[in-house]
């Protein structure tokens, strides 16, 4: 009898996670904080000439990172002033910890000075991300 309840419990947990993911996955969080303490490997990836850098944090063990890479690089290709870079933190746990990143993919939008504008956990939703980036870019997003 315990087994039946365990199975039902597991199904309920999965259904709850499904609902949560539906509403929270790919959500944009506006963080807007200046960063003086950017980890070195992240600072190296910044480009002072580009208004917004989308920094995708990935690991080797991350299946949705590939979908995120396709989506973000396509978006960056079509958009002036936007670039996409990826940082694999499989062997850089201190970088992930320094950025407060616990899951992959996490995407951080950084301005030219390295200040964090927003971050997205999970595969970003294209339209939501475009809307959130618009105020920070020189020209409309194509």
């Amino acid at each position: 009898m315990t087994g039946v309840w365990a199975v039902l419990g597991a199904v309920a947990v999965v259904a709850a996670v499904g609902v949560l993911l539906r509403f929270h996955g790919g959500r944009v969080r506006v963080t807007a904080k200046p960063r003086e303490d950017l980890p070195g490997p992240v600072r190296d990836l910044l480009d002072p000439a580009t208004p917004v850098t989308l920094l995708q944090i990935s690991t080797t063990f991350c299946a949705p990172c590939r979908h995120t890479r396709v989506l973000l690089s396509d978006l960056a290709d079509r958009t002036d002033g936007l670039r996409h870079v990826e940082l694999d933190v499989t062997n850089l746990p201190e970088v992930a910890a320094g950025l407060g990143v616990l899951r992959t993919p996490t995407t951080l939008a950084l301005d030219a000075s390295g200040a964090e504008l927003l971050r997205v956990g999970g595969v970003p939703k294209r339209d939501t991300l475009i809307a959130a980036l618009r105020p920070h870019l020189p020209r409309p997003i194509g």
Partner: peptide, 13 residues
Amino acid sequence: ALGLCLGCEMFLL
């Protein structure tokens, strides 16, 4: 059901 790989998500943790 959801295509979510829990082990992969938990890797950093």
